[in-house]
Design a protein around this nucleic acid. Sequence first.
DNA 1: AACTCCCGCAACCGCCTATCA
DNA 2: GTGATAGGCGGTTGCGGGAGT
Length: 343
Amino acid sequence: MGRPPCCDQVGIKKGPWTPEEDIILVSYIQEHGPGNWRSVPTNTGLLRCSKSCRLRWTNYLRPGIKRGNFNPHEEGMIIHLQALLGNKWAAIASYLPQRTDNDIKNYWNTHLKKKLKKLQSGSAVGAMDPEPSSNTANSQGCFNDDDEERKSPRVARKPSPPTSFSAASSSGSKLARSSSTTYASSTENISRLLEGWMRSSPRSKPSSLKKNDDASHRDSTHPIKNSNNPITPAVAASTAQPSRPKAKSEYENGGDVVGHEEYESMLSFENVSNISWPEKSCCDSIQRKGGEQEEEEEKVAVVDKGGQKDESGAPPLTFLEKWLLDETVAGQVEEMMELPSIF
DNA sequence: AACTCCCGCAACCGCCTATCA
DNA sequence: GTGATAGGCGGTTGCGGGAGT
């Protein structure tokens, strides 16, 4: 039979989002909360399909997301999770709640894959092969990539022991390249407009409430995720929940729009850092490191240790979790992230 | 300075799953 | 139980910008 694409309708706009569209979408979601995407274009007048609205929100506008500048530890996590889970980007993203699956996917395809390939060709270790044509690790339960992965979608992966490999850090790459595209530059305008909108909104909070401005939200080319986005801290806190829920449950559970007081309380650092983190000691150690970005990632990752099953369909991953989240191993990961000379 | 090539990312497409009537 | 619909996910693509020549 086949369902017609939701974007088939005439008059549906495609292509890059404009700042105005972003504002409309954010405003609407601020008012009604995410979810019921079907009604978003209708109610907002956006000439976008519901899917496009959802993607735009989840991948770009959603507060609390961090974009670009993957640190070595994140790289390590992605690499290992990819080895363990395959191209289950959503599942992988659940362990890096500040990252979107799209972002992780892009980063894998554009950076990590190449790095691993390069590394392997250089070291001939063969522990990790990013290319499907030479999936040497597959026989050991590591699902590495693309085609093989696609042939067996949504199948729980058998976790395999972490392979011994080195991965490149982002130093020396183009990672720091400015993403000041036409759109990116316009997002600064969005930021300002949003700020103005928030000020005029009864729900809005003054920018003085911004927190973590300096640390984890430094990319000024993405104002939505940085301090200029007044809704970021609150929703970031709300999203920093055990095992990143799916968008629907994440917001529809009566918590769509953060109330004023709730908003404020959520902004307190204690609250953010104490949202039932089961192993605060781990977080503390991370905090002592002064690792700006790692800090929250770790916290959220630690949350997953609570034992609940990953909603995105990932296996229980107790081993994985243990390995990834173990404090001492975290250090090993960082060590493994040390650049080989070829980088 | 101009041109070409390469790279990264945002967004689209199509399929799958979950949910509901 | 079945079909319709919305949401979710992963793969792919096209565009814009930077690097290289």
